[in-house]
Design a protein around this nucleic acid. Structure first.
Lengths: 351, 351
DNA sequence: CGTTTTTCCGTAAACGTTTACGAGAACACA
DNA sequence: TGTGTTCTCGTAAACGTTTACGGAAAAACG
């Protein structure tokens, strides 16, 4: 249907039009446009000139078919159960960085979200099997992630935001250092005199929850503080989850004087619960949030939090993915399979 | 490079493999898979069965080339000057709805963002001319939008989130009723006894700013209140903009007792400025925000705001776009070119 | 001037589909 | 039995590229 309009010259013309117009074969035109060496400097000029005049750009479907590459990357956003918002404020900056770097290589970004709460194997398979993308970027990585297993077995290139236990070190991944954040948070609180420190993290198989807890535990031990299971709780990764689970740790026989939340939405819910108990963060209890979002800043009291550099992370993961693709790989040795990025402490009023 | 692995049977096979395996021509296989009538029921069964076994799905590039349609829609996000965040909390829910409805039709979503502050004509042209998408959804519509002009002239299908003065009623568009929101906000404030009401909106050519101001003005006139230009101000559409411009309206000879902000980030900046002047929203001044985001809810005091139904809007715009595409059009008469959606008032503490 | 090399270009196949066309077989009908 | 219909399928072209191959012309070389 689109071809019909072709004659109007506003729409792109095909390489045949160009060749006809120049009295030249399409092969030569193609070689000229693609910078091949075996074409006369003169004719190359004429071709480029004509391409500009006729407003020609190569049809991507034709290219994809011939080259076996679509020049597009799929970004898969799999909502955690309970999270209706895809980690809303988290992903836009990351996506911005990712797509910016991809765009520099003329790669397009396809975004695949799932129905909340539903796993995306089907959508993923479709992308892979119909060859809609050349590679996949996985977000919301789980501890055991069947998407990773599938892609590994299929030999389909991919990279992940967040580590997983699946698949080993065979694919590029970029992660936030939740372990260090958990540890740093404990250090900070201990330095301020706290010894009863609670930890609240998302339930389900989210890998970062485990990393966080590792750091938390190790730091406590380092400070000679015994880990009290009553001070550790899991909940749904949303406001309701935090609201529901916070009273549980507060009900511990010896009340905690500080809480570390491993998710911003859970922290907000937790603070609501605290407020209802008449406990004021920043006064009666110290609160630290592990991943900062704009909400933490504007909440009252403003929440002390650890912040990742999301946009640079997006750029970086794009680079790592590209470096792992044969078609883009630079010098062989430069392939980096794993990076763990630190978080920056943003001290505010809640601790 | 991908083809190399084909033999391993984990990767998709081609229609030729299927035909060979069944001792049948590829034409028949294709017709069987596509539900054409002229194929024996038996053979269709065998084909479908084999397709399942061999894990066959059609290569999208091949399809696109043959059919002249890519089955993907591009979503263009053009940041407003001054907005580094692409209206961050605004777009994820919209995108969620959009992509959900598109996915139901097996359409993929390609997201194209621009460098902040840079217009995207180039990126848009590339998508259109290389035929990477079958249609485009435009966001961040401007009052005069050259993207709309371009797409109209090129005869390329598109739809917009937000109205524009460009292009007339020739394309599907879905808009938030900023005019009514501006008017409703004034009504509410007047009913609560206010008569000196300020309006702060983004500068630049953003259409919704004009609509909002129209509603604001009309409502004032309806209540017999003279419009005071000193109470209207434009600023950059970010926190700094609100911070910078709010003192200006507060410096008016007769101080306003209420402010309507046409953007959440500007409202937050404005509240900061107010706080520094010792003026408390909800006590000393009434504040209403025109587009609600999660930030408004958690801010202290919680900001009264008008909220759009972003996810349903995304779904709806997808429907409208599809209905306008020949390949998807239902009955001719059902093409809806323009819809304006109301906002819901979320009364909180700031007014 | 003859031979070899280089430069440049045209030809045609290939990527994986869909689909217009036509033909053989089976069937119906007179 | 002859004719017309209906089912079913194979053939081949087409979508727009890129690229392997070979060959003609030009240049280089002896």
């Amino acid at each position: 249907m689109l071809a019909k309009v072709r004659g109007e010259r506003l729409l792109a013309s095909s390489i045949h039009d160009l060749a006809r117009h120049l009295n030249i074969s399409i092969g030569t035109v193609s070689r000229a446009l693609n910078g091949r060496a075996d074409v006369n400097a003169d004719t190359r000029q004429r071709v480029l000139e004509a391409a500009r005049q006729l407003n020609y750009s190569p049809n991507q479907s034709g290219r994809s078919l011939r080259q076996g590459a679509t020049r597009s990357i799929a970004f898969m956003l799999q909502p955690h159960p309970g999270d209706q918002q895809y980690g809303e404020p988290f992903f836009i900056p990351f996506l911005t960085g990712l797509q910016a770097r991809l765009a520099e290589h003329d790669l397009d970004l396809m975004v695949v979200m799932g129905e909340p709460g539903q796993y995306q194997q089907e959508r993923l398979r479709r992308v892979v099997e119909t060859r809609r993308a050349d590679a996949v970027v996985l977000a919301n990585t789980r501890r055991e992630d069947d998407r990773i297993d599938y892609l590994s077995k299929a030999g389909f290139p991919f990279a992940t935001l967040g580590r997983s236990q699946s698949g080993g070190d065979t694919y590029p991944s970029l992660d936030i250092d939740f372990e260090k954040a958990g540890s740093d948070a404990v250090d900070r609180l201990v330095a301020r005199g706290h010894r009863r420190i609670a930890a609240i993290r998302p339930s389900h198989d989210l890998n970062f929850g485990y990393l966080f807890l590792d750091g938390y535990r190790k730091a406590l031990k380092r400070h000679g503080i015994e880990v009290d299971p009553g001070l550790i709780a899991d909940g749904f990764i949303n406001e309701a989850g935090g609201y529901q689970v916070t009273p549980r740790v507060m009900a511990s026989k010896e009340r905690p004087t500080a809480i570390i939340f491993n998710n911003d939405a859970m922290a907000l819910g937790g603070c609501k619960a605290l407020a209802e108990m008449g406990i004021r963060p920043g006064h009666d209890i110290a609160v630290i949030v592990i991943v900062d979002t704009p909400l933490c800043r504007y909440f009252s009291p403003a929440l002390t939090a650890f912040r990742p550099s999301l946009e640079p992370m997006g750029r970086r993961l794009a680079e790592m993915l590209l470096a792992s693709l044969p078609a883009f790989a630079g010098p062989e040795g430069t392939r980096i399979m794993r990076e763990v990025w630190p978080l920056e402490l943003i001290a505010r009023e809640s601790d």
